[in-house]
């Protein structure tokens, strides 16, 4: 669908380089398997049969930061974990994005105390925040699609 109609009989399609790159980036975005707390269980649910995130080209959870380009911070980040999280983020190759999943990762949630970092945006730059404690799998999928839209809008002059 779609592509064949554009092709016509010529076998050639013209587009902008930006759009081509963004299209390929959104359709094979590999998240890093980075479950911290409760939200990790909902992240697993989103991967499993009922919600099936592989519909969006996201079925490959990579265990290694070197092979992934999306970090889903699923759960509360403790002060002990924060430096580890930043190191993992630094190890991911560019381009890379971060989804902060759940209230704890976004703003500390119900845990306003000595042990929890009040928002993972103090440690890594966040692209999309997903609200909920924990967010439903649909909410996570919505967050992912929002990120895809954001990536599609990226312009080449910002890449450098």
């Amino acid at each position: 669908m779609g592509l064949e109609q554009k092709l016509g009989n010529m076998g050639v399609v013209t587009t902008r380089l930006e759009d081509l790159v963004n299209w390929s980036r959104t359709n094979a975005m590999w998240p890093m398997l980075f479950g911290l707390a409760c939200c990790a269980i909902e992240m697993m649910s989103a991967q499993a049969a009922n919600y099936d995130m592989s519909r969006f080209g996201m079925e490959l959870m990579r265990a290694s930061p070197r092979q992934s380009d999306l970090m889903i911070v699923a759960g509360r980040v403790s002060r002990k974990m924060a430096p580890v999280l930043r190191r993992l983020y630094d190890q991911m190759p560019d381009p890379k994005w971060v989804i902060s999943m759940g209230d704890c990762a976004s703003c500390g949630g119900v845990f306003n105390n000595y042990a929890v970092v009040q928002g993972v945006d103090e440690v890594v730059p966040v692209d999309v925040y997903v609200a909920g404690c924990p967010p439903r799998p649909e909410a996570l999928i919505h967050g992912v699609i929002t990120l895809h839209e954001k990536v599609r809008r990226e312009r080449m002059k910002d890449w450098a």
């Binding site: 500390g108 306003n112 105390n113 000595y114 009040q118 103090e122 890594v124």
Partner: peptide, 28 residues
């Protein structure tokens, strides 16, 4: 005698005030 370590939550009325103080991470 150890404090809880409470931080002020960010609401609409004090959003800007806290936003200025809050440290944010940046990309390398």
């Amino acid at each position: 005698d150890y404090p809880l370590g409470y931080e002020e939550p960010q609401f609409t009325f004090n959003y800007d005030e806290i936003d200025v103080r809050k440290p944010y991470a940046y990309r390398r």
